[in-house]
C-alpha cells in the first residue's frame, strides 16, 4: 500500500531540505543581527566549494580537514565581505539611520555588487562550466536502509547541520559572545551604550555565518560531485525563502522551514514534475506571507 518509492522520494526531499537548512542557518544569523539581507551569502557558499576543490586537488586530505580548512577560509571571506560591503555603511550609528530604509537598501545593493564581482571573478578564473571533484573524495556511497537507499552524504550533511544548529543555539544562549550577538540584534544602539563592541560582534557574526555557508558549499559540492560559479544562486534563494517562512530571525524556524521546503519539492517532483517543483516552494512562500505575515515561527519569539 505504501510504496517504498514514495519513501525514497521523501528521503531525497529531506536531504534536499537539509542542504537548504545548512545554507539558511548562516543566512538567518546574519539577517537577525544586522537586519540586512546578505545577498553575497550564496557566493560565500560557492567560494567555499571552490576552495574545497583547490584543497582537495592539492593535498587530498581527509574530509574533516577539508571542511575545517574551508570553514576557516569562509570565516576570512566573511570578515572581508563585512569589511568591504557592510562596514562602510555603518558610518552613521544614530538610531534614525540604523532604521532608515536607504541604509538598508544600500547594504543590500553593495552585497549584491560584491556577489556579482565574486561570481564573475570565479567565472574568469575557472570558466562557467561544471568542475568535477575527484571521484574518490565524493560522499555518495550508497547505504541501504530497509526499503530505501540513502548515501553517506545525506548522513554527513544531516549531522553537520544538526551540529551547527545545536552549536549555534548553545553559542547564542549560553555564552557571553552569544549574549552580545543577541544584544546587538535586539538593539544596536543600546548594546553600544552598555559597552558592547558592536563592530566586533558584527564581524564575529559574519565570520560564523560565512564559515557555515562555506562549509555548506564544500559539502554540497562533494555530495553532487560538480561545482560551478553560479551554484550558490538557487540554494541562496531557497534559504531566503526558508528564512522568511521561519519568521526572519528565528534560526530553528528557518531550519524547519528549509526541511519543509525540501520535502515539498521532493513530493512535487514525484507527483507533478521536477520543472514545476520551484512553483511549490514559491507558492508556499506566498501562502505563508499572506496567512502568517510574521512567518511560521516568528511571532512572540526573541530575536535570533
Amino acid at each position: 500500500m505504501f510504496d517504498p518509492y514514495y519513501l525514497q522520494q521523501l528521503a531525497i526531499g529531506l536531504s534536499q531540505g537539509v542542504i537548504y537548512a545548512l545554507m539558511a542557518i548562516g543566512f538567518t544569523l546574519i539577517f537577525g543581527v544586522l537586519n540586512v539581507v546578505n545577498f553575497a551569502h550564496g557566493e560565500i557558499y560557492t567560494l567555499g566549494a571552490f576552495v574545497g576543490l583547490l584543497v582537495i586537488t592539492a593535498l587530498a586530505p581527509p574530509l574533516l580537514v577539508v571542511v575545517l580548512v574551508v570553514a576557516a577560509v569562509g570565516a576570512a571571506f566573511g570578515v572581508g565581505l563585512e569589511r568591504i560591503a557592510f562596514k562602510p555603511f555603518r558610518r552613521f550609528s544614530d538610531e534614525a539611520s540604523l532604521k532608515s530604509r536607504a541604509m538598508r537598501e544600500s547594504t543590500l545593493m553593495s552585497s549584491l555588487a560584491v556577489s556579482i564581482v565574486a561570481r564573475e571573478g570565479l567565472e574568469l578564473a575557472f570558466g562557467s562550466q561544471m568542475q568535477t571533484l575527484p571521484f574518490d573524495q565524493l560522499i555518495n556511497k550508497p547505504i541501504a536502509l530497509g526499503p530505501i537507499t540513502i548515501v553517506t552524504g545525506d548522513v554527513i550533511i544531516f549531522a553537520v547541520a544538526a551540529v551547527m544548529l545545536i552549536g549555534l543555539q548553545w553559542l547564542l544562549t549560553r555564552t557571553r559572545v552569544g549574549l552580545a550577538i543577541r544584544a546587538v540584534s535586539a538593539n544596536p544602539l543600546g548594546a553600544k551604550y552598555v559597552g558592547i563592541d558592536t563592530d566586533r560582534t558584527i564581524i564575529l557574526t559574519f565570520a560564523i555565518g560565512s564559515m557555515m555557508g562555506a562549509a555548506a558549499g564544500v559539502l554540497v559540492g562533494l555530495y553532487y560531485g560538480a561545482i560551478f560559479p553560479a551554484m550558490g544562486f538557487v540554494p541562496g534563494i531557497k534559504a531566503f525563502v526558508a528564512m522568511v517562512m521561519g519568521g526572519l530571525s528565528s534560526i530553528p524556524g528557518a531550519v524547519i522551514c528549509a526541511l519543509l521546503l525540501g520535502l515539498s519539492e521532493g513530493l512535487a517532483t514525484t507527483f507533478i514534475s521536477s520543472n514545476w517543483a520551484d512553483m511549490v516552494a514559491y507558492g508556499f512562500l506566498i501562502v505563508t506571507l499572506i496567512f502568517f505575515p510574521q512567518g511560521l515561527f516568528g511571532a512572540g519569539r526573541e530575536r535570533v
Partner: peptide, 28 residues
C-alpha cells in the same frame, strides 16, 4: 490584490517569489 498588504522585507520577498513563479511558468 493579496500581497500588497505586506510591508518592507516581506513585500520584497513576495515580489521575488512572484517574479520567480512567472519565470518558472515561462520556462515550463
Amino acid at each position: 490584490l493579496p500581497t500588497m498588504r505586506l510591508v518592507s522585507i516581506y513585500f520584497a520577498v513576495a515580489t521575488l517569489a512572484i517574479g520567480q513563479m512567472i519565470h518558472t511558468v515561462l520556462l515550463n
